[in-house]
Amino acid sequence: MSALLQVRGLSRHYGRRIGCEDVSFELHPGELLCIVGESGSGKSTLLNTVAAQLAPSAGSVRYRQRDGEWLELGQLSEADRRRLAREEWGFVTQNPRDGLRLNVSAGANVAERLMALGVRHYGQLRSIARGWLERVEIDPARIDDAPTGFSGGMQQRLQIARTLVTQPRLVFMDEPTAGLDVSVQARILDLLRRLVNELGLAAVMVTHDLAVARLLAARTMVMQHGRVVETGLTDQILDDPQHPYTQLLVSSVLTT
């Protein structure tokens, strides 16, 4: 099977400070990769650089688009980058308020990406939006409510619906369950797990929570000080960690 994303020697510096350094990996279609590490380890910088939201200081990111063509993301024009973000990718932010349009209704939030792709039939937009609200367990009767009145968990589920409605091939997620209650987290993780399976999504997810990686990701990368210190199968990394930092992370997890 051929890769969907190829990252080679990717670095991102902030002046003299290192965001991430010399990171390489591949992502295959239908695969969810977790990037774990503590705050400040460079996870989010890496995610944003791979997703072409930050310019790399060195290295390359290649993406194989729907028609099979490889794109070198560093050489894309702004127009192409946005087209890709609109038509083939999705991005789920940690704080749903950053990813949602708060001053318009839940339905419009879900329908926006479809309208950006040129869907111009109101009735069709409504029925797709209703279907997605149901899929993320939001009462479709709330389709015309503004997300400002939603709980944090509902807002995050709405953001997921808004992102996945166009059936992207590749989704970037930055700590999508951080900042939510544990019970709410479980619901969102289960939802993501189901949707990733049903839609055959490929995804790169940043998390500091090893249990999230265990539940969702077949493969995991461990980052420390901007570098990848260990990478492999998630169960291998969690059950037989090799690097001292990974051993520390794994041994620091509370078990119930």
């Binding site: 609109r86 209704s105 339905g107």
Partner: peptide, 22 residues
């Protein structure tokens, strides 16, 4: 300005959508 440059006008339909919804 970027949206104009790219002819990326899905956003305008969000407003019309909201009108019909309300």
């Amino acid at each position: 300005r970027t949206l104009h440059a790219l002819g990326d006008y899905g956003l305008m339909h969000v407003k019309l959508y909201e009108d019909i919804a309300q």
